[in-house]
């Protein structure tokens, strides 16, 4: 744990503070104020992202610091999109997710710029990671909807928003094509870089597990519909657990080395 006394660090802390205040304002009923601060937080996050991009001279998706930094900016547009178009609630919680996602970037991971090793120099680098990071944020929202459903089945039907079970389903429908695309772009890239589209390395296997959990979710929901709605929700949460392991695997265990080890 260390504080970053840099301009980039400052922008990250500003974003964290803004997201936090936006959350507090929203839950205390000052929705309008919350919205404005949330937007300001997003602008600070976008500035941090752009600054980092300029600084390291490649899209900042290379290491854990950059990955969490980037997820911190996707939160805002996604929560606006989900509320307005998909009618899925959870904006206040999204602000908190923003704080949680930026926390590791601000305090845990080191920010030393690194140059891209040969294997990462591919046009597939950016879309592969971008698509994954966006889908991860969406699946976090799905898991939160599912969690809310498990706690409170009645769900919210206020403000024209859908209930939690339907909310979970919509989020997964939104995120699944991106998750699929991420998996396939990764595999395609692996073919170009290492000569194999599938190397059975732990990171690949965990990303397959995450994907399969959502495949399972769809089939369970098709088979049983709302009859076992708690099972549906549990699968959505399980999917997120698999995603977290996929993302942190290299950091969680250095005992199982694999090709993706540079992602640490």
């Amino acid at each position: 744990m260390a504080i970053k006394y840099t301009f980039l660090g400052l922008l990250i802390y500003l974003t964290i503070a803004a997201y936090l205040f936006a959350f507090l304002a929203t839950i205390t009923g000052k929705k309008k104020t919350g919205q404005v601060i949330y937007l300001m937080g997003f602008i600070a996050a976008a500035a941090a992202f752009a600054y980092r991009w300029h600084d390291v001279r490649h899209v900042p998706f290379q290491n854990m610091f950059e990955v969490f930094l980037s997820m911190g900016i996707f939160v805002y547009p996604l929560s606006i999109f989900c509320r307005r178009l998909l009618r899925v609630s959870g904006e206040a919680v999204d602000m908190l997710i923003g704080v949680i996602l930026l926390f590791p970037a601000g305090f845990v991971f080191h920010a030393e710029p690194q140059m891209l090793p040969p294997a990462l120099q591919s046009w597939l680098f950016m879309p592969h990671v971008a698509v994954y990071l966006i889908s991860y944020v969406i699946m976090v929202k799905a898991a939160i909807q599912a969690f809310c459903y498990l706690k409170d089945k009645t769900g919210n039907t206020k403000e024209n928003l859908v209930g939690y079970e339907e909310g979970t389903y919509r989020m997964i429908c939104f995120g699944f094509p991106l998750l699929t695309l991420g998996l396939i772009l990764g595999s395609w890239w692996g073919k170009l870089a290492w000569g194999d589209y599938w190397g059975w390395d732990p990171k690949e296997l965990w990303s397959l597990v995450s994907w399969l959990v959502y495949v399972g979710y769809f089939h369970v929901r098709y088979m049983f519909g709302q009859k076992h709605a708690r099972l549906n929700s549990s699968l959505a949460i399980l999917g997120l657990a698999a995603i977290v392991i996929t993302l942190l695997w290299v950091n969680l265990s250095r005992i199982f080395p694999g090709l993706h080890s540079y992602a640490g």
Binding site: V209, G216, F256
Partner: peptide, 18 residues
């Protein structure tokens, strides 16, 4: 089953998983 085997494979490492 595929999900469970993949998890096991992740613990074994790439060579054994293959």
């Amino acid at each position: 089953l595929l999900a469970v085997l993949s998890m096991a494979g992740a613990f074994y490492g790439a060579e054994k998983a293959k």
